[in-house]
Design a binder for these strands. Structure first.
Lengths: 153, 153
DNA sequence: TACTTTTGCATCGTGAACGATATAAATTTG
DNA sequence: CAAATTTATATCGTTCACGATGCAAAAGTA
């Protein structure tokens, strides 16, 4: 049993990785008609909560690097969902704001979380089990974020 | 509060997506010295459990599509970790087997799961909380797998 | 046996993710 | 105030992830 630990079955990360991919897959039927991807949907969620944010703030809220978010925003700009304007106080900043199309998409998207919740309930019989997971995931995310950052110093 | 549902904080998927990315990030210090990526590590886990498997079996165990796994295996072959030979009974199949280098890497990797467990314990104070998540994640994965498959029919 | 369908794998194109690096503007320091 | 440093964003290269498509071998069917 020397290599017992190396069994795929024993691994938490593999579960997270797979569950994330498959859950994102479950968004496809709802996001495809809108012509957006899941990461683009996340950017819209951030901007719907507060319009006109610099790239860095968006990246920070999504726990992503700016070199991931920049091309994402460029594609969203090309798709007519957002505009990127130079910052006024700090000209290094790019302020990202929603276009009319981006604002209007909120209405089309507002049912999506309910649809996903329903699907999870339908899969599992109960919702509670997954609501209970959320604080644990938040704790994990906060801890890993800190650990990974310390490595880069 | 019409759009309350859209708030990022309410989303399970975002947690899974972020936790998965950051956990994979936590593997970097252990995988970089071996010169492999996390998905490549997963392929090795599968092959260490059972050598000589067709592409399809590997993909299935990882819940990935073959068009993801094929290029992954091609890179691993170029790196000298695996060999891909034509199947004997079914010549359409490609049987993937470990090279000497791939077999030997098991010894170097065997401590990794313990290291990650320790890190999670250190982050959160206790392991139980995350062990408890595993059956829920498995239930979610199984359900989503079935749902997504039905969409492709 | 000829024909159709399915299966196993590969290729291509697009969109993330992210490390490394670049660049210009702001900030700090001497 | 000039020089060094930090910050905000962008660019580039590599590796996934996956839908769409292609192709040859196997399996099923008339």
């Amino acid at each position: 049993m020397e290599y017992e630990q190396l069994k795929l079955d024993n691994q938490l990360c593999f579960r997270l990785y797979t569950a994330a991919r498959l859950t994102i897959g479950a968004y496809h039927p709802y996001l495809d008609p809108l012509g957006i991807t899941y990461p683009q949907y996340l950017v819209l969620l951030v901007l719907w909560e507060q319009d006109k944010q610099p790239v860095n703030d968006i990246a920070h809220k999504l726990f992503l690097e700016t070199n991931t978010v920049t091309p994402l925003l460029q594609r969203m700009e090309k798709a007519g969902l957002v505009m990127r304007t130079k910052g006024k106080e700090d000209t290094r900043q790019r302020i990202v704001s929603l276009t009319k199309k981006g604002i209007e998409m909120r209405e089309q998207a507002k049912h999506i979380p309910d649809c996903l919740s329903d699907e999870i309930i339908q899969i599992t019989g109960e919702e509670e089990e997954f609501v209970r997971m959320i604080p644990s995931l938040d704790k994990l995310i906060a801890g890993l974020k800190q650990n990974n950052q310390q490595l880069n110093k």
